[in-house]
Design a protein around this nucleic acid. Structure first.
Length: 426
DNA sequence: TCTGGGGTCCTAGGACCC
DNA sequence: TCTGGGGTCCTAGGACCC
């Protein structure tokens, strides 16, 4: 941790505007200036909105069925989410950003922090514009750029930049004036609970939070709350994570398109999620020592009894073997499954992830591992070449009647020739 | 009828040990 | 037979992020 109050410190936050919507627009010139919305998995909630859709009053995170009328009335274009497309475009955006600073933290699919301390104050805004223009020209995705002395302040700057015509804001002078107009709930690190607590105590702007006493913050919140306050004061407490850190847990879960009652169907979905998670950690050359299985009914259904349960199984030997993990997961599922409920969601979590190279003290392990690695490599290779699920296990099911809804997909996959957009069709 | 998915970090409290 | 308190480790659950 670095508690350096150095005004020369400059960090930029580059954030793609309405990222998923912008991705869909890239291949669909007809929807450039019309209201567009992208839905979450299972076509459940609104997770990305164009400016026009925001103006109509469609809220972030709102269930789709609640805004259906608004959508119809205003002719809003709807898309199911297409993560293959968004992931690929994200990688391209990040590649361009890497050209502007060698210190970069890819914070999420549509955001990155960039260290710009090497740029002089009087040139940094111009530099931000260069970044923005290049991403727009090369990839076609509009961004906002916020620059300041700490990550939290660059988040503030970015927020302001989103409403700014140029899309770039360097926050250095008159910071307090800007913070006075900045809603406490919009501060990075202040969520629903904290903002409730702060407002109850009369702290309703970023400025008031900045000037709150250290002892009060530490007493009333935790270290993270205290860090946020320091960062608003321009004292850097949250470092740039420039090294790629491997994940510590891996979760795969889905809601069902239709509610599921039978153990059979739950078994199919858990098996499928397990295979996907195992493949994910193999890609990162990791193994797991713990698998959690969870199932639950809908928390929104007031007419039926709610049931939610999970079980965690510790594995004697770390593994990434799909077949072993499926076996354990199904055993776990049988322990928590209860007849007579309408299940809405199921998933698995692999935790205690480690590097595969860390060998276990088990005499048989090396031999068994070699054999299973070869099999898993063959499966991964085949699936990469011939498409997902070319090879699966019978328990994962073929029909998959429980699969999620995806009724509005653009079906574009820039990583697959079969699903590239066509200019001419015959 | 229809309400996402995937992460990280922090803390309180229980279990255990001496 | 009676009975203490402090330290560590682990985990579940909560809060936050996008």
């Amino acid at each position: 941790m670095s508690f350096i109050n150095n005004s020369k410190n400059k960090v930029a936050l580059i954030d793609c505007n309405s990222f998923y919507v912008s991705c869909e627009r890239l291949f669909n010139p007809k929807i450039q200036n019309t209201p567009v919305v992208v839905l979450s998995n299972n076509d459940g909630c609104v997770i990305s909105r164009s400016v026009e859709a925001k103006k109509i009053g469609i809220k972030m995170g709102e269930p789709y069925f609640k805004v259906k009328n608004l959508v119809k009335k205003n002719n809003v274009k709807i898309f199911s989410s297409n993560y293959a497309l968004y992931g690929d475009l994200s990688r391209r955006v990040m590649k361009v950003l890497k050209g502007f600073s060698d210190k970069i933290e890819i914070y999420s699919i549509d955001e990155a922090f960039l260290d710009l301390s090497h740029i002089k104050d009087d040139q940094v805004e111009e530099y931000g514009k260069k970044i923005r223009n290049k991403v727009l020209k090369w990839i076609g995705i509009p961004t906002s750029v916020g620059i300041s002395s700490t990550k939290t302040l660059s988040k503030v700057a970015n927020h302001i930049a989103k409403k700014n015509k140029s899309g770039v804001v360097f926050l250095k002078d008159n910071i307090d004036n800007k913070l006075k107009d900045f809603d406490i709930a919009d501060v990075w690190g202040v969520g629903r609970q904290l903002s409730k607590l702060y407002k109850k105590n009369g702290i309703d702007s970023a400025y008031k939070l900045k000037n709150i006493s250290n002892t009060w913050v530490k007493k009333s919140t935790n270290v993270l709350g205290a860090k946020t306050v320091m960062e608003l004061r321009g004292v850097s407490c949250i470092d740039l994570e420039t090294k790629e850190i491997k994940r510590k847990s891996c979760c795969v879960s889905r809601s069902f398109g239709k509610k599921v009652e039978s153990l059979e169907k739950l078994r199919e979905s858990i098996t499928t999620h397990c295979l996907n998670a195992a493949e994910k950690i193999r890609i990162d050359k990791q193994t797991t020592r713990s698998i959690t299985v969870f199932i639950r009914t809908s928390p929104f259904d007031k007419n039926r009894k709610y049931y939610s349960n999970s079980v965690t199984i510790d594995l004697p030997v770390a593994t990434s073997n799909s077949l072993e993990l499926v076996k354990e997961a199904i055993n776990g599922l049988k322990k928590i499954y209860k007849y007579g409920y309408f299940y809405q969601k199921a998933g698995i979590i692999l935790s205690k992830l480690n590097e595969s190279s860390e060998k276990e003290f088990n005499l048989l392990a090396p031999i068994m591992e070699k054999k299973s690695n070869t099999l898993m490599q063959a499966i991964d290779f085949t699936n990469a070449k011939y498409g997902r699920n070319s090879i699966s296990v019978a328990q994962a099911g073929v029909k998959k009647s429980w699969k999620m809804r995806k009724e509005h997909s653009s079906n574009i996959d820039t990583a697959s020739f079969a699903y590239l957009p066509r200019v001419f069709t015959t």
